[in-house]
Write a protein that binds this DNA or RNA. Sequence first.
DNA 1: CAGCATCCGCCACGATACTG
DNA 2: CAGTATCGTGGCGGATGCTG
Lengths: 135, 135
Amino acid sequence: MADESLSERYRAWQAEGLDPGGCPVRDVLDQLGDKWSTLIVIILAGGAHRFSALRRAIPDISQRMLTQSLRDLERDGLVLRTVFPTKPPSVEYRLSELGRSLLEPLAPLVGWAEANHGAIRAARARYDREQQAAE
Amino acid sequence: MADESLSERYRAWQAEGLDPGGCPVRDVLDQLGDKWSTLIVIILAGGAHRFSALRRAIPDISQRMLTQSLRDLERDGLVLRTVFPTKPPSVEYRLSELGRSLLEPLAPLVGWAEANHGAIRAARARYDREQQAAE
DNA sequence: CAGCATCCGCCACGATACTG
DNA sequence: CAGTATCGTGGCGGATGCTG
């Protein structure tokens, strides 16, 4: 009835190698799951940005987390960092080929989030109301 | 050059409403970004599971986190919980209609993770090697 | 401008023990 | 079997101050 390919692939992976930490889903999704990485990728989808431009695009990120998230994305090969030796220096961040390839599966997920955000918020409100009533 | 639709949508959203926490991407992705939720959804894609079956399917999850993750998924309306008053009781978890609709955008992302896991690990190793050399 | 260093609160998560 | 209750910990992430 449901699409079983996902769970089948997980079981297949689980059957052979046995390192739970080496699971591709966890390894990759954990990175995208942190607070800012996905958002940065989405913004960089619109083109290269400088450090301060990213700060402006995400008003409520601390520069510590922006730096760290960019480093992680660079380390994973999703983002390229280019330093222009001007004075004062400027640094440009852009998606790598790998990073751009992520946009393809990411776009539908973002679309799903937007489309179903209301339904999820409604479900939460209803759940909380029922819990309130039960107590 | 790149797909700009994602960043455009983010800017559009940012332009009107101004609550960063209300951003659909963050609100929804933060949930999927926790350590276990996505994995549970993937497993439930294969059909309904009982609590103990889920524990067996994810050997390294604590029952505390399994319970909590299932509660969160239920609260968001992605998972349905059915109690059978047998003795001892058994509880079945399955994806709701909303939960199954998530599989559609989720599957390509999991495919991307599997396909590019090697490239990411290689990028990490290279980055770490360069850092090592620079120091 | 683009950062690094430091301090610190909080909460996600795990381990353990107990219940209907 | 399917949970709750409690405690302890690591590290994610924020705030602030300083540098090339």
